[in-house]
Amino acid sequence: MEPSSGGTTAAARAAEVLLEFGRGSSGLGVSEIARSTGISKAVTHRILTTFVECGLLLYEPSTRRYLLGPAAATLGARALDVSPLRRAAREALVDLQRTTGETATVTGRLPGGRVYLDQVESTQEIKMTVELGRRFELYSGSSGRIILAHLSEAEQEDVLSRPLSRLTPATMIDPVALRAALQEARARGTCRSTGERQEGAASVAAPVFGADGTVVGSISVCGPSYRMTDEACDEYEGAVVEAAQRVSRVLGYRPTGAPVGESQ
């Protein structure tokens, strides 16, 4: 099928429907997916039926809702295993956790979102952990906002022009305030968050760049907010930046103007 003026194809519509299930919902109905994607109910139903037939989705007749199926779980696990960013970040995460004592994470960029690819958990009794493989928005939390801060202005506006959901009382959803926060994060090279995505949690993150210079993800340290104070974030910030730069180098990134043979 030739793409329309909006670039929509049968494959793109199918992908858009499937990606809805990465938002963490316990199940989705036809009407809910159609409303979210703007795809007609009839087309949405046909796509869902196809995914059920190949095992990517399961259908629950009692609730008339669809869930991710075993084939999707297999693909997700495989995607984590082969992710270049996940592999490149592993040693840096181990060292970052040892340095800070808190949980270290790596996040990968998705179209309009992000996903945690790996973590090295804190050894402390009370600690923060993240959900690997689940899609999160870019505007909330330090790991997402530092990625958003390094996207183009058009990409930022595409995110900020949409309705933004308040995940906690501290979630920043005002576009004006978010634009200012993005400018600050880009200038500083790091981003901090306290209770914006998850109450009681705090984090500091730095961007990871690919060989072509585009932002591909982020590295963060996260922990309970009573430990991740401003003073602690000041202390950990340098280690987070160093870890992110280390991963960027492994991925082949070299800043413009860096001497030949020097990656960062």
Rank of each mutant, 00 (worst) to 15 (best):
E91G: 00
T50I: 10
T129G: 02
S225V: 06
T9F: 07
A170E: 09
S218I: 05
G22N: 08
S193L: 05
S4D: 15
T171I: 05
R109M: 11
I47S: 05
R166Y: 07
S203K: 06
V260C: 07
R246P: 06
V215N: 12
V241M: 13
T129D: 01
A34F: 04
L18F: 15
G55E: 01
D212F: 07
R46C: 05
G55P: 04
E137M: 06
E137T: 14
V30H: 07
Q183F: 07
L132E: 02
L151Y: 12
R249N: 06
L167A: 10
M128W: 09
V106F: 02
R197P: 01
Q245I: 10
A201E: 09
G24L: 02
L164R: 01
Q264P: 11
A206L: 13
A244C: 08
S143M: 13
I219H: 09
G189N: 03
R197C: 06
C191R: 12
L132P: 01
S263H: 11
S5H: 09
F51Q: 12
S161Q: 01
K41P: 05
C54K: 02
V240M: 03
E2T: 15
A170H: 13
V130F: 05
S203G: 14
T9W: 07
D230N: 15
A104G: 03
L85I: 06
Y236L: 04
L182K: 04
L167K: 14
S193W: 10
A239H: 14
R98S: 08
Q97M: 03
D118C: 00
R90L: 07
S161Y: 00
R162Y: 04
T105Q: 02
V176T: 11
A177M: 05
L80H: 09
C222W: 04
V120Y: 00
Y66W: 07
D158N: 13
R46S: 11
G112I: 11
E196W: 04
A177Y: 02
T103G: 04
R109P: 12
S122Y: 03
P207N: 07
S165E: 10
R23G: 12
A14M: 14
R35I: 11
E199Y: 02
K127S: 06
L75Q: 10
A73C: 00
Y236V: 02
A149D: 11
I219V: 15
P70R: 00
L58K: 02
R86Q: 08
E91K: 00
T37M: 03
L28V: 11
E153Y: 12
I146S: 15
A205R: 10
L28S: 14
I33F: 05
R135K: 11
D230S: 14
I126D: 12
G101D: 01
S152P: 13
G223Y: 07
T50K: 06
R162W: 06
A201T: 12
E53K: 06
R249E: 10
G144T: 08
V260W: 08
P169C: 06
P207I: 00
V241S: 10
E2I: 15
G238F: 13
S248E: 13
V215F: 10
R254T: 08
P255D: 03
R249Q: 09
Y59G: 03
S31L: 09
V30M: 11
R109G: 14
G210C: 07
T100W: 01
L19N: 14
L80V: 05
I219T: 08
G223K: 03
